[in-house]
Every structure is written in structure tokens, then in C-alpha cells.
């Protein structure tokens, strides 16, 4: 029991992060709704942010902001992962923004953001372009014959 406890105390956070990540990936794969997929994508990104922040953690360290009482580097937690993750958050914000605007466009053009509906409509679309192309060709042929 103590072994499990100590394991959870030391590595449990990694386990939780991994579960979060797996949830996100599974959601992207299984969800039918494109909006849900986007949300799952965000969950996945958050998991990685956690992972990095865990790396920067250390026992007894304080936040990496210069405090009057603490002068030694050993008294602070590693600030670098936090810096990195600020960047990653910005990137994920950008990705989400692009994803949302794409979703708007998809909704505008196809009238749905459900994947199977979308696939069906894409098929219809491709059949239609095929048909119009053939029609155009026939018209061309006819005008040439005349």
C-alpha cells in the first residue's frame, strides 16, 4: 500500500496527465462533431502544458518571481517550462482560433459540422462537379458540331 502511495505521490501527476492526453486523443478520433473534436484537441494541449509544468516543479521551491527573502536559485522552481508553456498556450490559442474560423466556414458552406453528414455532402458535391463538367463538355461538343 505504501508503495502505491509513494508511487502516486511521486509519479501520480504524470499518470493523470497521461490520462488527460489519452482522453483528448480518443475524443479527436471518436467524436463525430467537429466542434467536439476541437474541444478535445484543446484538452490534449492542456495535458502537454501540465506535463511541462510538472517538469519545472521542485519541492520547497517558490514561484519564479524575485522575492526579497530568497536570493538563491535553489529556492525558486524552474521558470523555463513556464516560459515555454506561455508560448505553447499562445500557439494553441492561435490554432483554436484558426480551427473555429474554419468551422464557421464549414457550417456556412455545408450547413453542418457533423462528420458523417459532411462526408455525404462532399460526395454529393464531387458528383455534382463531375456532372457539370460533363454537361459543359457536351455543350462544347454541340457548339463545335454546329
Amino acid at each position: 500500500m505504501t508503495m502505491i502511495n509513494s508511487f502516486l505521490a511521486e509519479k501520480g501527476i504524470y499518470l493523470l496527465t497521461f490520462i488527460l492526453l489519452a482522453l483528448g486523443v480518443a475524443g479527436i478520433i471518436t467524436c463525430n462533431n467537429y466542434m467536439k473534436k476541437l474541444i478535445c484537441m484543446n484538452i490534449m494541449q492542456v495535458a502537454v502544458i501540465f506535463l511541462f509544468l510538472c517538469l519545472g516543479q521542485k519541492r520547497g521551491g517558490t514561484i519564479p518571481v524575485a522575492l526579497s527573502g530568497a536570493a538563491e536559485a535553489a529556492e525558486y522552481i524552474n521558470p523555463l517550462p513556464h516560459g515555454l508553456m506561455l508560448t505553447a498556450i499562445v500557439v494553441s490559442l492561435g490554432t483554436t482560433a484558426v480551427g473555429l474560423s474554419l468551422l464557421l466556414r464549414i457550417k456556412e458552406k455545408y450547413g453542418t459540422i457533423e462528420e458523417d453528414d459532411l462526408l455525404y455532402r462532399e460526395k454529393l458535391l464531387s458528383m455534382e462537379t463531375q456532372r457539370t463538367r460533363e454537361k459543359l463538355k457536351k455543350q462544347d461538343q454541340q457548339s463545335k458540331d454546329k
Partner: peptide, 9 residues
Amino acid sequence: LLVGTIAAT
């Protein structure tokens, strides 16, 4: 975008 973000992650 979805697949690419998985890759980035």
C-alpha cells in the same frame, strides 16, 4: 489542423 495539432503535441 486536427491531425497536425496531434503531431505538434
